[in-house]
Each structure stands twice: as C-alpha cells, then as structure tokens.
Amino acid sequence: MPTVRVGDLSDGDFLLDVREDDEWQAGHADGALHIPMSEFVARYGELTEAAPQDGRINVICRSGGRSAQVTMYLGQQGLDAVNVAGGMEAWAATGRPVVTADGAPGTVA
C-alpha cells in the first residue's frame, strides 16, 4: 500500500477526503476535495475533474482504513494515489489546521 506521512505533505498537495458528511462538517483540511467513500464510485468523475492530471492523489479519512481502500481502487484505475498514514487524527495531532466550511476551527470526528 503506497503511504505518505502527514509530515511529508506540502501545503499545495492534492488531498482527497473520503470521510462521511458529518465527519467532514465537524472539521477537515482546508482545500481538500470531499467525496465520501459511500458515494465514491458514483462521484468518481468529480475526482477526475479536480485532481491534477500528472500529480499524486493523497487520500485521507479519519484513521486510514477507508482511505486505504480508496487508494487501492485508484491504483487499480492507473492513478498515482497514496494513503495518508493515520488520517485526520494524525493530521490534527501534528498541528495541521482543521477547519469547518466557514473557516472556523474544527475538530476530527
């Protein structure tokens, strides 16, 4: 499983958040694309439109399980995708900002 640590991500890296709506609303990484895993196949086109054509897709969930599944799926589609180790829990633990839709401080749910 291709994996990246939160500390190895740069501010401009493309981030795909596959958590459910309630988790996203509680708090997320600013600038991430949100497509819940439960809707992923139906909304796959949104990813192909938003993702960099020749760049890596960093997939994140709460702790790494769901994002690992999506990472495997994307790899099977021939895309360069990696799982963010530890997910949003690791993101928050390293001091990276977690925000709500209006930019206020959020939490990892």
Rank of each mutant, 00 (worst) to 15 (best):
P52L: 02
I60D: 00
G31S: 03
T94M: 08
N83M: 05
G7D: 13
I35E: 01
V82D: 00
G78K: 04
M72P: 00
W91G: 11
A92N: 05
P52A: 10
P97L: 10
D30W: 00
T107Y: 00
D22G: 03
S63Y: 03
G86C: 08
D8P: 01
L47C: 11
A109R: 09
L33S: 10
A104F: 07
A29L: 10
A90W: 04
I60F: 01
F14W: 12
Q53G: 12
R96D: 07
T48V: 15
G86P: 02
M37T: 07
N83F: 05
F14Q: 10
I60N: 04
G45W: 12
R43Q: 13
F40L: 14
I60Y: 02
W91D: 05
G103L: 06
G55C: 12
L47A: 07
S10D: 12
S38L: 06
G65E: 11
L16I: 07
A90N: 09
A93E: 15
D30T: 10
M88D: 09
T107P: 00
G103H: 01
R62Y: 01
G86H: 03
P2M: 12
R66V: 02
G75K: 02
I60P: 01
T94R: 00
H28D: 11
A50N: 09
E23Y: 07
G86M: 04
L33Q: 12
G87K: 01
L74V: 10
D30M: 11
A68I: 03
A42K: 13
R66S: 07
E23K: 04
